[in-house]
Design a protein around this nucleic acid. Structure first.
Lengths: 144, 144
DNA sequence: GATATCGTAACAATGGTGGTTACATAATTT
DNA sequence: AAATTATGTAACCACCATTGTTACGATATC
């Protein structure tokens, strides 16, 4: 186990919206696809609406839909919408500054982590929701 | 906050061993530099010994030392020694397989996460403990 | 006005993380 | 061999993030 399921679930949510292209989809319907509680989905959608990846409407016939074409939404957009800025534990890592190593290691680690993070994000930026949508249609899972 | 402090602390530990080049260093001394409990340090060192990055010796005059030259140890080696294989929450993410999206999204996400992870690890592989050691000596922190 | 739906607070259950104590094991020194 | 020093690791605790759940107010449609 590592990390939370927010990013995975959010990609699922947006993939589902792409799959239902254009329609207004309720949190209950999405929750059924993700197999979780509608409130959990609405929490994610709240962040996604905030990031302007999704639009939501209340009331009868309401629900959620993509705010942009799938080709214009990358996994990095989704990642940034629902994940806090990762720090690899640096905020809880408080070495002894009286030690020459402890005094300087944080700066060095910060630089290294930033490089790693930037590289990972660049990879996520290369994958669009449209790519995911295409794979959804063509991937043969070989399961069941 | 994101993630644990094991990787950051482990890099600190190895940087400290590089700093004390060759000497046998006790877990208590390292703990003082990291500002934590010696048992926490020994837990990390246990993993690092297992990964053959460090050697340890019991008894009077015992302690720990690097198993290789700093130039031969990369941050990726350290990362892999102390962090479990990250899955971005995929093991707890169990969508409804009766839904066409839920049935296929896991495979797609696995592929995407693997790309991102591989990219990040490649970046960590580019930084050696020797690099960190050099920075330790030259970095001007500008603090205080 | 009734109904459907979102938005969000509040709370519980679970599990990971880090700190601490305790103690067995092993190596060195005398 | 006995004392000392240090590792190795189990056990336990406190803390916090994550997720699921209930509840309920707000809002849009019919």
């Amino acid at each position: 186990m590592t990390g939370n399921t927010r990013f995975a679930a959010s990609v699922h949510v947006l993939a589902y919206l792409a799959y239902k292209s254009g329609a207004q989809v309720t949190s209950a319907e999405i929750a059924s696809s993700v197999d979780t509680n509608p409130v959990v989905i609405r929490r994610l959608l709240s962040a996604l609406v905030n990031a302007q990846l999704v639009t939501g409407h209340k009331g009868v016939g309401g629900g959620f839909g993509l705010a942009s074409a799938p080709a214009n939404i990358t996994l990095l957009d989704i990642y940034r919408a629902v994940e806090p800025q990762p720090d690899h534990g640096l905020d809880r890592f408080t070495p002894n500054h009286k030690c020459p190593v402890g005094a300087r290691i944080e700066t060095i680690l910060r630089t290294a982590f930033l490089k790693a993070q930037t590289s990972m994000e660049a990879e996520l930026a290369c994958i669009s929701l449209e790519d995911v949508h295409q794979q959804l249609k063509h991937v043969c899972t070989g399961k069941r």
